[in-house]
Measured scan of single mutants.
Amino acid sequence: SSRTRFTDYQLRVLQDFFDTNAYPKDDEIEQLSTVLNLPTRVIVVWFQNARQKARK
């Protein structure tokens, strides 16, 4: 499976959201998916990875 290449804009939006809320609800994931034009699955994985990094 090929890795998703995020744009600077997508990363900024995801990071800004994460800084406020590391555990987005389903409807928030749907909204991010629509706004960023990314599959919900990709967003879910991004947040999982971001939470892992934040824990270190």
Rank of each mutant, 00 (worst) to 15 (best):
T4S: 12
K25Y: 01
R55G: 11
F17S: 09
Y23M: 13
R3V: 15
A22R: 12
F17T: 09
R41V: 12
Q48T: 09
R5E: 15
N37E: 04
L38E: 04
V45N: 03
R41D: 15
D27A: 03
S1T: 12
D16G: 14
Y23G: 07
Q48W: 05
V13D: 14
L14I: 07
A22K: 09
I29R: 01
D8N: 04
T40A: 10
N49P: 01
D8F: 04
I29D: 00
P24Y: 01
S33N: 05
F18Y: 14
L38F: 05
Q15W: 04
L11N: 13
K53C: 14
Q10A: 03
N37C: 04
L36N: 01
T40N: 02
D19P: 03
R51F: 06
F18K: 07
R51H: 03
V42N: 04
D8A: 09
P24M: 02
D8W: 02
L32D: 02
K56T: 13
K53W: 07
V35N: 03
F6D: 09
S1I: 11
S2P: 12
S2V: 11
L11Y: 07
S2R: 09
T7A: 08
E30Y: 04
T20Q: 07
K56D: 10
E28S: 07
T20D: 06
V42Y: 07
D27Q: 14
T4P: 09
T34S: 10
N37Y: 02
L14W: 00
Q15H: 07
I29Q: 03
V44S: 12
Q10K: 02
L38R: 03
L38W: 01
Q10F: 00
A54M: 12
N37R: 09
R5N: 15
P39W: 00
R55N: 14
W46V: 01
R3P: 14
R41T: 13
L36G: 04
T34R: 10
N49Y: 06
R55K: 15
A50L: 05
V45E: 11
L36Y: 01
S2Y: 10
F17L: 09
S33T: 12
Q52C: 03
L11M: 10
F18P: 00
D8E: 08
R3M: 15
V13F: 10
Q31K: 13
R5V: 14
V13I: 12
V35K: 15
F17W: 12
I43Y: 00
S33D: 00
N37W: 02
L14R: 00
V45T: 14
T4A: 01
P39S: 10
S1M: 13
D27M: 12
R41S: 14
R12D: 07
V13L: 06
L14H: 00
F18L: 10
L36K: 01
R3E: 15
Q48E: 08
F6L: 08
F47R: 01
I29S: 01
Q15C: 05
R41P: 08
R55P: 09
F18W: 11
R5I: 15
D26Q: 11
V35P: 05
D19T: 15
K25E: 03
P24V: 02
R3S: 15
T7V: 05
P39R: 09
I43P: 00
L11I: 11
S33G: 06
N21Y: 02
W46P: 02
L11S: 14
R41E: 07
V35W: 06
V44H: 11
Q48R: 09
L36Q: 00
D27R: 11
D26S: 11
T40V: 09
P39K: 06
L14T: 00
Q15G: 09
Q31A: 07
W46Y: 04
S2C: 15
Q31Y: 09
D16A: 10
F47M: 04
R51C: 08
L36P: 00
S1R: 05
A22H: 09
D19Q: 10
F47E: 00
S33Q: 08
K25L: 06
R5D: 15
Q48G: 07
T34D: 07
F6R: 01
D16W: 01
S33W: 00
Q52N: 07
Q15N: 08
A50P: 00
R12I: 02
P24K: 01
R5A: 15
A54W: 06
A50I: 03
T20Y: 03
N21G: 03
A50K: 04
Q52G: 05
T4G: 04
L38A: 11
L38K: 04
K25H: 03
K53G: 13
I43L: 10
N37D: 10
K25S: 11
N21S: 06
Q52H: 12
Q31I: 04
N49W: 04
K56S: 04
R3D: 15
Q15E: 08
S2K: 13
T34L: 12
Y9R: 14
V42A: 09
N21M: 03
